[in-house]
Design a protein around this nucleic acid. Structure first.
Lengths: 219, 219
DNA sequence: TATAAAAGTTAGAATAATCTAATAATTATA
DNA sequence: TATAATTATTAGATTATTCTAACTTTTATA
């Protein structure tokens, strides 16, 4: 049993440690909005408990044990988000804060019931995969919209980071998960995308926005 | 905003302070499974915050402010229990521990949504009234089954204390909320009740059990 | 490569919530 | 009512999590 605080560190380490799995104390302190010495002492504690690999002045990595624990917390977070959207009628831009709290609830039955009522979903409302009960999770080979070129047709599958503001921005543009997007052109100067989708014949997306949209090629 | 710990003290004070609203530090320490000095120092803190009336060596009482805060936490607890039973399919004997955790979630929207999905329920799955948004709550004038006499016909409306074991006991006897109970006789020696209800022509209930059943006279 | 900037660490203090041991006040009882 | 038992309080320590200030190591840059 880990404290809520420890769980939050694990989750942040999991989310920040993308490819190599390495996370700097500094990044972590920014992510969690804590001072570096605070994070530093927690790193020692987590290392003590075998949840991370830690050496002085080097970036931190989750151990296998830590990775599994983190994935199971993220599983609870994502199941909760899905439940809030599918069963309670919340918008995808309203669920993060609630899920952030619900994810710490200690009750396997509670999350098993959510899972069952949802029909064992594989993704959350933002398109992120839900880790399975053993903590395994795989991202499909999505491509950032920002990496596509004029003429491509793609399906919008997930967002990389789901801040409320970004999701509200997508709402205002009627950009929903599953939408098929045609790339009309890409402005070379600033990489602004001109696209069409749904009943929008022509819409602009900044590079900043395009970087946050994960897509799948449509044949 | 109060800590989870403070919320638990407020809830315990509310639940223990039945008629006069007075609670001894000793009772409270037993209820919360904490040592008396721990409770004593928290009493000073709650008094400081205006949540209780406290004088040395005297029992403690919730202030109006404390009463309202406590009722609002109990509201969240009972709405959660109702949601777990009605919308998620849990048994009335399985919800206490989950609700004990969910009640601390800070999200008015989350509980407002539960309330709405449940159709603004007035009672929880154990027959206890759900305080309204202003913290007001009234118990109907129920009568303990143990206070009824042979010949009475009553409707089972609520349980006074809802431990898992007691609720499982009621499950095993098919005694559900709403059941009409006919009191056939009361053994003078030990106050054991012989009753009939549903398709049970004759069943025995100890005085201990009868004390925990709240009923309403049926004309 | 010497120096400045950034990142990381150590030491020591603060707060919240808990405990044990000792003491004081209140209540029950012989 | 004097004494014992119970209840309440005080004092001081402990653990978890956080902070600031000072120092060290690593990285970037002039």
């Amino acid at each position: 049993m880990y404290s809520q605080t420890e769980e939050n560190y694990l989750k942040a380490l999991f989310n920040l440690g993308n490819h190599k799995g390495e996370v700097n104390v500094n990044e972590l302190s920014r992510e969690l909005d804590l001072k570096m010495p605070t994070v530093n002492s927690m790193m020692k504690k987590l290392a003590e408990k075998g949840l991370i690999h830690y050496e002085s002045y080097k970036p931190v990595r989750l151990s296998e044990k830590g990775k599994k624990e983190a994935a199971l917390i993220i599983r609870k977070h994502r199941l909760t988000e899905m439940f809030l959207v599918e069963k309670m009628g919340f918008g995808w831009d309203e669920v993060h804060n609630i899920a952030e709290q619900v994810e710490h609830i200690q009750s396997p039955e509670f999350f098993a019931k959510m899972d069952e009522l949802l029909g064992f979903p594989k993704i959350d409302p933002h398109g992120s995969p839900i880790p399975d009960q053993s903590g395994k999770m795989a991202w499909p080979e999505y491509i950032k919209l920002s990496e596509c070129k004029a003429g491509d047709t793609v399906r919008f599958r997930a967002v990389t980071h789901s801040s409320d503001e970004f999701l509200k921005f997508l709402n205002s543009r009627e950009l929903l998960l599953g939408t098929i997007i045609h790339i009309q052109s890409v402005e070379p100067f600033d990489n602004t995308f001109t696209v069409s989708y749904g009943n929008r014949a022509s819409a602009m997306l900044s590079h900043i926005a395009a970087e946050k949209l994960l897509t799948e090629k449509v044949s």
